[in-house]
Design a protein around this nucleic acid. Structure first.
Lengths: 206, 206
DNA sequence: GATATCTTGTCACTAAGTGACCCGATCATG
DNA sequence: CATGATCGGGTCACTTAGTGACAAGATATC
């Protein structure tokens, strides 16, 4: 099965699962229900996900893939601040994917549902690994380097906190405006990463 | 049930569970086996733990409680570096608890067992919350402050990476000596936290 | 010593997740 | 076009993690 198709199918399942989790709670949602909602047999669900909670993972991941891919395309001669600002504003004209709202809802649910919280943490564990190669690459350090791993962990952690914060704010609907200004968001993310890495990750490389 | 007794019981269960996980793998260890090993009924196990994997949590936690409690007792007028160095050397004369080795083994297992990795991440999620109040308190910031949460997240993340690194090194037995020098360990931890918080957390407060 | 509370054991039960086998589609090869 | 190999998915039986309900023993309080 092509990686593409598999990923799309997982995302499709994830959307339905996340919707059900949000509407009726995690405990009240069975694997059978998820399967019925997406039109597959229950057995097939377990072929693609380890547990019913982990069905939420692709949707959660979807909330940060753009940021991660932006990090990956970060050119060496630019500062992270500039890069994120230009790219985020460029992208922001496109319609924001519906999944993002779902992802925020899952993060919200993760506050009270331990099983979902583990999924959320595992997703950011994945982000941390990606950060590891991105940062290691940028700093010209060997792959398993301890310093690089700490930078990546700290960076992923602050992004996670920021993500949760923004998600909570958007969901409550209180302060929606400050997060529609993409350059401001870019600056906050870039600043957080730079701070969390002691200033090592964020600037341009001569 | 007193908090003390409950914690001790959980730890006792956790020790047996961790031992079994290490000896025969997580999948091959059943709740019944854990119960039998500790001399309780299976039902009682589920009264104290949500899942069999989470039985490993207290042992994992035990690996960082000393550091967390040291952070909590960190006086404002001292630098983290000094405080950790003096306290760690003072403590290092006491026999190192046997649980630490078990904790390292669990972290090792977490590399290949996703279910255990979630437990490990959840344990550090707890550490992050503790860090949150410690750091928020030290910086005289309100409880839910975003900056404080990011500092706490970054600090917990680097400690986690350091812990995994040290654990792996000790388990392979390759370089045991560099981690018996407690002042060196203290310096590394303190330096990592200071870096991850952009230099904000680590120094003495006038 | 009587009683209320609290923890555990027993047992029946639900549901998450797996293994084994089959079926239809797709695709390569003759 | 025929054929067979591979692959994704369905069906069904089965294991086991985890829960609810109730009984029983321990413990504390008066």
């Amino acid at each position: 099965m092509s990686e593409q198709r598999r990923a799309r199918l997982r995302l499709e399942i994830s959307r339905e699962a996340a919707r059900l989790f949000w509407e009726q709670g995690v405990a009240a949602t069975s694997g059978d229900q998820i399967a019925a909602a997406v039109g597959l047999s229950t057995r097939t669900i377990w072929r693609h996900f380890r547990s019913k909670e982990s069905c939420a993972e692709p949707v959660i991941m979807q909330g940060v893939v753009t940021l991660v891919s932006l990090m990956r395309s970060w050119p060496r001669h630019k500062s992270l601040d500039d890069h994120l600002a230009t790219e985020l504003t460029r992208i922001s004209h496109e319609p924001p994917p519906v999944d993002n709202l779902l992802a925020m809802k899952m993060i919200r649910l993760a506050d009270t549902e331990p099983a979902l919280r583990t999924v959320w943490l595992m997703a950011y564990d994945q982000v941390e690994r990606e950060m590891c190669v991105i940062i290691g690459d940028r700093l010209d350090r060997p792959a398993g380097d301890l310093e690089g791993r700490m930078y990546a962990a700290a960076a992923a952690a602050v992004v996670r906190v920021l993500d949760a914060h923004i998600g909570a704010a958007v969901l409550t609907g209180a302060e929606l405006t400050p997060f529609t200004d993409m350059t401001a968001v870019a600056r906050r993310i870039a600043h957080a990463i730079r701070t969390a890495t002691g200033g090592v990750v964020g600037g341009p490389i001569a």
